[in-house]
């Protein structure tokens, strides 16, 4: 019994489509509580989109929906112009939708090498993954046989990024990359995001640290209460608006 025999054929991604990821009027609910009330977000091919908003705005839910972990209760999800509503996380991941979830994007009880090996489900050669990752983050190469759980927070996030980047993703989704990390490390991570974006990979990045991501992003979307409040070019976003959303109005 081969492992892929149970799988439906992964959707093929057409990277020539102008929009690589689109959520159209998406609704999502936990049981009877609807938390996304019809949001529309588009990620143009080759661009970096920042998804901002205070705690509990529905950002993480949006990522869960876009990665296929959570079903939508209304609306549609498109990858590269193809309707993938209802397709599971495993299939989307194999089709090149790469997600680094919030908090720990690593398997703490696997070694660094084994963590990287998990990326091979996308079809990339094992050795290639390792070489790419270790070239990008030499620090990981030094500790290749160490358990990921013993790494520092920054190193863990590095590993998660390394795993994601080495899969040659169609779209990369990063959720709260900076959570619990020192600003200096966050800066380094975003340099990598900028680098991969320069290579033409489309990125959707969820952030609380608005400033760090706005330097990299082309577009910004601000969410609150499960709806999209504002969206437009990243340069046009008013920082005072963000400050008051986060810390409460004066």
């Amino acid at each position: 019994m081969s492992e892929s025999s149970t799988a439906s054929p992964p959707p093929t991604a057409d990277t020539t489509s102008p929009t690589i990821l689109a959520l159209r009027d998406v609704r999502a609910a936990y049981g009877s509580i609807e938390v996304l009330h019809g949001i529309t977000i588009e990620v143009p091919t080759g661009s970096v989109v920042a998804l901002l908003g205070p705690n509990g705005a529905g950002k993480t839910t949006t990522i869960s929906v876009a990665s296929g972990l959570m079903p939508v209760t209304g609306g549609a999800l498109e990858i590269a112009g193809q309707d993938v509503t209802g397709v599971g996380a495993t299939e989307l991941a194999r089709a090149g939708v790469c997600t680094v979830p919030e908090g720990r994007g690593v398997f703490p009880n696997l070694t660094i090498t084994e963590n990287l090996l998990m990326a091979s489900y996308t079809g990339v050669e094992r050795n290639e993954i390792r070489d790419l990752a270790f070239a990008r983050f030499p620090r990981l190469a030094e500790r290749r046989d160490q358990l990921a759980g013993t790494l520092s927070g920054g190193e863990q996030q590095m590993l998660a990024m390394a795993r994601a980047l080495s899969t040659d993703p169609v779209i990369l989704m990063l959720d709260e990359l900076s959570m619990g990390l020192a600003p200096k490390i966050v800066g380094q991570l975003y340099e990598q995001v900028a680098a991969i974006a320069a290579d033409g990979v489309s990125v959707l990045v969820v952030e609380q640290f608005a400033r760090s991501v706005l330097g990299v992003a082309d577009h910004a979307v601000v969410m609150a209460h499960g709806t999209v409040q504002w969206s437009g070019a990243a340069n046009d976003l008013d920082e005072d608006l963000l400050t008051s959303t986060y810390l409460g109005g004066p």
Binding site: T6, L69, G88, A89, T90, A93, P101, F107, M118
Partner: peptide, 8 residues
């Protein structure tokens, strides 16, 4: 996370 990696 395993699913997000494409595992079953």
């Amino acid at each position: 996370l395993a699913e997000l990696n494409g595992a079953r």
